[in-house]
Simulated assay, not measured.
Amino acid sequence: MMLFRYRHNNLVYLLGFCDEGDEKILVYEYEFNGSLERYLSSNTLTWAQRLKICIGAARGLEYLHNPPGTQHTVLHRDVKSAHVLLDQFWEAKIADLGCPK
């Protein structure tokens, strides 16, 4: 329930969850361009786009580490390009909050 409180333009929104018996599922919004991981070794992204993505990811992490109000700090603990998703406008969205693998 705690993850529902975190809303920021650079975070993937948690839409719902299932916690029945052994089934534990988190449902997040879909991001059109997938993860940053699949674009890093290609020439698809310009340097300007890469910089914009880095700044967006940093803003999302800053929000988690210094949340406004009475929200608790969330340390991601597994930041990597696979957990930076890109929407249809190439905006970075941090995913897999607090769920290290």
Score class of each variant (00 low, 15 high):
3 L>R: 02
8 H>R: 02
38 R>I: 06
18 C>R: 10
38 R>D: 05
55 I>A: 01
10 N>T: 00
97 L>S: 02
73 T>Y: 12
12 V>E: 03
42 S>K: 11
10 N>Y: 06
37 E>I: 03
93 K>G: 03
71 Q>I: 09
66 N>S: 14
93 K>M: 05
29 E>S: 08
85 L>P: 01
99 C>M: 14
70 T>H: 14
47 W>P: 00
25 I>A: 07
39 Y>H: 05
80 K>R: 12
66 N>R: 15
18 C>S: 10
94 I>G: 03
82 A>C: 10
53 I>S: 01
63 Y>C: 09
98 G>T: 00
60 G>H: 05
18 C>L: 04
98 G>H: 04
32 F>Y: 07
10 N>G: 02
68 P>H: 11
1 M>N: 12
9 N>H: 07
74 V>F: 15
18 C>I: 04
93 K>A: 07
51 L>W: 11
6 Y>G: 08
19 D>T: 09
77 R>D: 15
89 F>L: 08
91 E>Y: 05
31 E>C: 10
7 R>P: 06
23 E>R: 10
80 K>H: 11
97 L>K: 01
71 Q>H: 12
33 N>F: 10
30 Y>H: 14
18 C>W: 03
73 T>W: 09
43 N>Q: 13
81 S>R: 01
98 G>W: 09
81 S>M: 02
73 T>N: 12
27 V>W: 02
41 S>L: 06
87 D>I: 00
85 L>H: 01
59 R>M: 06
12 V>F: 11
29 E>G: 09
61 L>Q: 06
87 D>E: 02
85 L>G: 00
7 R>A: 08
14 L>P: 00
22 D>T: 15
96 D>C: 02
7 R>S: 10
37 E>V: 06
5 R>A: 13
80 K>N: 14
32 F>H: 11
16 G>E: 02
21 G>C: 13
66 N>T: 14
6 Y>N: 05
43 N>K: 11
76 H>M: 14
19 D>M: 09
1 M>D: 09
82 A>E: 04
58 A>L: 07
